[in-house]
Design a binder for these strands. Structure first.
Lengths: 173, 173
DNA sequence: ATTCAATATTTGAAGCTTAAAACAATGGAT
DNA sequence: ATCCATTGTTTTAAGCTTCAAATATTGAAT
């Protein structure tokens, strides 16, 4: 074993000259491109959801979480899975219940918790929307081949894990 | 030349059996993973921007567009670059002007248009925030190597072009 | 000169979103 | 039994966001 210097996180002379602020333009450009992609796709799907089904994306996303959960889910679980605040979910659920797409009932075991599930109408409505939604997404990515789709999945998986690590243990500011 | 059947967009027997709805689960999973990544990163940066600088992400993003544009930019141009509605920009600009970070003036050439630019205080404030922001982003992606960053850039570039194509020419619903 | 479609911006209504505080219920430690 | 930190939900205030309608201005065609 030779003694190679390993200085993964140390500052080279150039970054010291910049006052300890290393150059990370590549990561910044990556983040901006990722954000652009997501914004474009989200905007397009939101528009189509509105034009075609007169529904908002947050409501559709909430219903998607509930699909395949016959017993439903608590508001808190919905909040965690959708990565939005509790109060946000309260409002969305209220509106969807008013529309007759969701039903809520208090938990027997824990009187704080409320279970929410799709109504029969909710299931039927969602099935129609989801099929078309899937086609839209497929078309949005249609110029990518299967290999590119797989590569993106893998790399985004790695990115996701990196973000989780950094969120748990942020850089000191 | 042999006569190979090319049926890129035709339906195979299996998808016909499903009622003309081909299976595109891979693209759907890719979209959901991309959205998860973006949501996690955006949430983390929003939190840090708030904790550290008491500023919102939309305001920071708007200032970022104005940096390096000494002559400023019209509201409409800001709206296009940020990919948000005109009315949205009006509100953000109003608040940033109130905070003394932005200045607006009517265009001489076109009295409908208003140019917006960073004030001196805006430039200084932004410089501090941007440096830290860059470090946050670098740390969020720190587990990715340079090759992975490049691959992601390239693949997201391809994805972006695909989305642009699909948005111009959507699938018939 | 007048008309009119296009462009730049603002406004208002509705809905989404967060953060923080409040409230209610749980369950474990004493 | 009581305490109390934790958990599940709601509420409120502030801000973000879109869409559509309104207003003002431009520039080109007549």
């Amino acid at each position: 074993m030779s003694a190679e210097p390993v200085e993964t996180h140390s500052l080279d002379s150039e970054s010291r000259a910049r006052g300890g602020h290393a150059d990370h333009k590549a990561e910044l450009r990556l983040w901006l491109r990722m954000l652009t992609c997501t914004t474009m796709i989200e905007g397009e799907i939101r528009r189509r959801m509105r034009d075609r089904f007169d529904i908002t994306l947050p409501r559709f996303d909430l219903m998607a979480q509930l699909e395949r959960m016959p017993d439903g889910m608590t508001l808190g679980e919905l909040s965690r899975r959708m990565m939005v605040s509790n109060g946000n979910v309260t409002g969305l659920v209220d509106r969807l219940v008013t529309e007759g797409l969701l039903q809520r009932r208090q938990s027997d075991a824990d009187r704080r918790a409320h279970y929410v599930s799709l109504t029969e109408a909710g299931h039927q409505t969602f099935a129609v929307m989801a099929a078309e939604h899937e086609d839209w997404v497929a078309d949005l990515f249609a110029d990518l081949g299967p290999v590119e789709v797989d590569s993106l999945m893998r790399l985004l998986g790695a990115a996701k894990r990196s973000v989780q690590r950094s969120s748990r243990n942020p850089v000191p500011s």
